[in-house]
C-alpha cells in the first residue's frame, strides 16, 4: 500500500494579475521504505507540494491521500525538516525537541523519555541544555531532525535540509539521515526530500521525481539503482545526473507546445 498518493493535484494562487498556476496535474506516490527526492527548477512548486502533502495547505484541485485516507488537515504521521532549521531561539535543545510532542498533547511524563531517546539517537547528548545560538549549523539541523523524529512519523518530509550547511557538514548529515531511514527500529519509514541539488538527490534517493518549470508537473521518475555509499565520480552516477539535468533544462512550458516570443 502506498503511504502517500498525490492524484491530479493543482495549486494556484490568486493575485492582482490574475490567477497564477503553481503546479498542474501532479501525480506521484511514496511507498513503504521509499526514499524519494523531488527536484526541479526554482519556482516549480517543490516546497509548496511538501506543504500540501503534510496538509499545511490545500490543493486547488485533486486529492492527496495518506494510507488511503484523504488529507484534510495537518497529518500527524508526517514531520517536516526545514532549510533554516526553524528552531525557537529561546528554548534549549531539549525544549525544542519536546515542542512537537507538547503540541500533540503528550503528557510531561511521556515527553521526557521520548526527548532523551531521540536526542541520543541523533547524537545530541551533551547539548541538551544548549541554546540554538551556541550550536553550529550542523548541530542545529540535528535538533530539527530530532524534533521531527521524536513524533515518530511514518514519513519524514525534508525541504532543502542540507542547503544552508557547509559541504562537509552536509555530507555528514546526509549520511546520518540515510542511517536513520535504513534502521527498522527507528522512524521514518519513508523520506520525501525536496532538493535543488541534483547530485544530492541521486546520492540519497531510490527514485528522483523531476518537476518542470512553473506550472510544475512531473516530467519523469528516474529510478536510482546504485549501491550505497554512492560514488559521485562513477560513470553510472554521472549518467543519471546528466539525465536529470537534461530533463530539467529541456522540460517545462515548451513541452506544452506553446511557443513564446523572446
Amino acid at each position: 500500500m502506498a503511504l502517500i498518493r498525490v492524484e491530479h493535484v493543482d495549486k494556484s494562487f490568486a493575485s492582482r494579475h490574475g490567477t497564477i498556476a503553481i503546479m498542474q496535474d501532479i501525480n506521484l506516490s511514496v511507498k513503504d521504505s521509499d526514499f524519494v527526492a523531488l527536484v526541479g527548477p526554482s519556482g516549480c512548486g517543490k516546497s509548496t507540494l511538501l506543504r500540501l502533502i503534510q496538509g499545511l495547505d490545500r490543493p486547488t484541485g485533486g486529492r492527496i491521500y495518506f494510507r488511503d485516507q484523504p488529507i484534510d488537515r495537518v497529518c500527524r504521521q508526517m514531520a517536516m525538516v526545514f532549510q533554516n532549521f526553524a528552531l525557537y531561539p529561546w528554548l534549549t535543545v531539549s525544549q525544542n525537541v519536546a515542542f512537537g510532542l507538547e503540541a500533540l498533547g503528550w503528557s510531561a511524563e511521556r515527553i521526557a523519555p521520548q526527548v532523551e531517546r531521540y536526542i541520543s539517537v541523533i547524537g545530541l547528548d551533551g547539548f541538551q541544555e544548549a541554546y540554538p545560538r551556541e550550536l553550529s549549523g550542523g548541530m542545529r539541523q540535528r535538533v530539527g531532525l530530532a524534533r521531527a523524529l521524536a513524533v515518530e512519523p511514518a514519513v519524514l518530509l525534508m525541504d532543502e535540509p542540507f542547503s544552508a550547511l557547509d559541504p562537509l557538514t552536509a555530507e555528514s548529515l546526509r549520511d546520518e539521515v540515510l542511517q536513520l531511514w535504513r534502521d527498522p527500529q527507528l522512524p521514518p519509514e519513508a523520506v520525501l526530500l525536496v532538493s535543488h541539488n541534483i547530485e544530492e538527490a541521486i546520492e540519497l534517493a531510490d527514485r528522483v521525481i523531476v518537476l518542470s518549470r512553473r506550472p510544475g508537473h512531473v516530467l519523469a521518475e528516474v529510478p536510482v539503482d546504485l549501491p550505497r555509499p554512492r560514488d559521485r565520480k562513477s560513470s553510472a552516477f554521472y549518467d543519471l545526473t546528466d539525465r536529470v539535468y537534461s530533463l530539467i533544462t529541456q522540460g517545462g512550458p515548451a513541452s506544452e507546445g506553446a511557443p513564446r516570443a523572446g
Binding site: S136, G138, M139, D166, P167, L168, T169, A170, E171, S172, L173, R174, D175, P229, R230, D231, R232, K233
Partner: peptide, 17 residues
C-alpha cells in the same frame, strides 16, 4: 574543524572506498 565537518570528511572518504 567541527566534529560534524570531520565526520563529513570520513563519510566522503568512505564513498571513495
Amino acid at each position: 574543524a567541527s566534529p560534524t565537518e570531520m565526520m563529513g570528511l570520513l563519510v566522503l572518504l568512505n564513498s571513495h572506498k
